[in-house]
């Protein structure tokens, strides 16, 4: 880890008390600052990364598709792979196109082709690499055009496509690529990385604070690191309260007690909690999302209760997304959750 930090920036925090604002008054986002350069530094998905290492050793890259949720290291892996393959020629040998770049058919036809045709001196047996980030947002027309381009220039150029859903990539392209799936990062993996960064940046934190970061990030490393940085620069200490303030999410502990009340059928207490959250200014979507996350993770809920709770929460979420984000909907959800545990004869008139 430390090797990576020194190799990337060559800058270790000399004084551990360096506060958030650097002397220049500008600080790089930690996400960029601590982005791995070596394949071995990538966190999580060890099997997939192992596979990339083999490819890097072999030198003969297939076209690849990396698919997975945001913030789990897809783009980072491609860049690491490109570094490993091309070394110094990285700058000339890589073309990256993002969804934010113009990327219609014309770009595929012209920009990509002219890059593919350009002559670049590379180590023997290596290829130029074209990285298409968020490839699933390309239109199918552009993908069709890409298919042909891939075929024609496969002698000199390899394509790496990163996408969230691999099924948004048309099949002829899938057929030409090796598909690498990235799974969500495990909490322990995120935690380890956060701790490393805390150490290097001299962030003061409590364990609960880091746990809160992990809860809010849900396996998304980028979000976890961003939240860490904002909490640290905003409050100077990473505690659960600060994290939830920064992330502006209802406190999961509050929600958890609320669910426990529901499980016991104590509707009044549960409603009081919802009212409190509502009064704090959280929107209905915020609340219902947190409720879902908490319910998913509650081990003490019996299987049946969990199933029914998730269904009710889902319905409510749907209504809220349809536009009725009101307290009434949340109250109704609570009422339905509570009714489940109240014996049916009590509900008879």
């Amino acid at each position: 880890m430390s090797t990576m930090a020194s190799s990337s920036k060559g800058k270790m925090p000399a004084a551990p008390t360096v506060k958030h604002a650097d002397a220049e008054g500008y600080e790089m986002p930690w996400v960029e600052k601590y982005r791995p350069i070596l394949l071995s530094d990538i966190v999580g998905n060890s099997e997939t990364v192992e596979r990339l290492k083999v490819i890097a050793e072999d030198g003969n890259v297939p076209h690849i598709i990396l698919s997975g949720m945001p913030g789990i290291g897809k783009t980072t892996s491609i860049h690491c792979l490109a570094h490993a393959l091309l070394g110094d020629a990285y700058k000339e040998g890589v073309l990256e196109l993002n969804a934010s770049d113009e990327r219609g058919i014309d770009v595929v036809r012209n920009k990509i082709k002219s890059f593919a045709q350009r002559k670049v001196t590379l180590p023997a047996g290596r290829h130029k690499i074209i990285i298409l980030d968020e490839a699933d947002s390309m239109t199918s027309g552009a993908q069709q055009a890409l298919r042909r381009t891939m075929e024609i220039y496969s002698n000199t150029t390899r394509f790496a496509l990163a996408c969230n859903m691999s099924n948004k990539i048309i099949e002829p392209i899938q057929s030409r690529c090796a598909i690498l799936r990235y799974t969500k990062l495990k909490d322990a993996e995120v935690l380890k990385r956060l701790k490393e960064i805390c150490e290097m940046e001299g962030v003061k934190s409590s364990d609960e604070g880091l746990a809160a970061l992990i809860f809010t990030a849900e396996g998304d490393m980028r979000q976890a690191i961003n939240n860490l940085q904002s909490t640290w620069s905003g409050f100077g200490f990473v505690s659960p309260e600060n994290v939830f303030k920064i992330c502006d999410q209802p406190h999961p502990l509050v929600v958890q007690t609320m669910i426990k009340h529901c499980q016991k059928g104590e509707i009044d207490q549960a409603l009081a909690r919802i009212d409190a959250l509502w009064d704090q200014g959280y929107s209905a979507v915020d609340i219902v999302v947190t409720v879902f996350r908490v319910v998913k993770g509650m081990e003490e809920l019996p299987e049946y209760t969990k199933l029914e709770f998730i269904r009710e929460i889902g319905w409510t979420h749907m209504r809220i997304l349809e536009g009725v984000g009101t307290l009434v909907q949340l109250g109704a959800m609570i009422a339905r959750l509570c009714r489940m545990s109240i014996p049916p004869e009590m509900l008879k008139l």
């Binding site: 799974t183 969500k184 499980q263 059928g265 998913k296 993770g297 081990e299 003490e300 809920l301 019996p302 299987e303 049946y304 209760t305 489940m340 545990s341 109240i342 014996p343 049916p344």
Partner: peptide
């Protein structure tokens, strides 16, 4: 893993022993 709470008496039909499928790990 800790035993989950019991179900109220009118729902006893839905009592199940713990599943071997760890859903959070299974979904990915």
């Amino acid at each position: 893993m800790p035993e989950p709470d019991g179900l109220p008496s009118h729902l006893k039909d839905f009592e199940r022993s713990r599943s071997m499928v760890q859903i959070e790990a299974f979904i990915p």
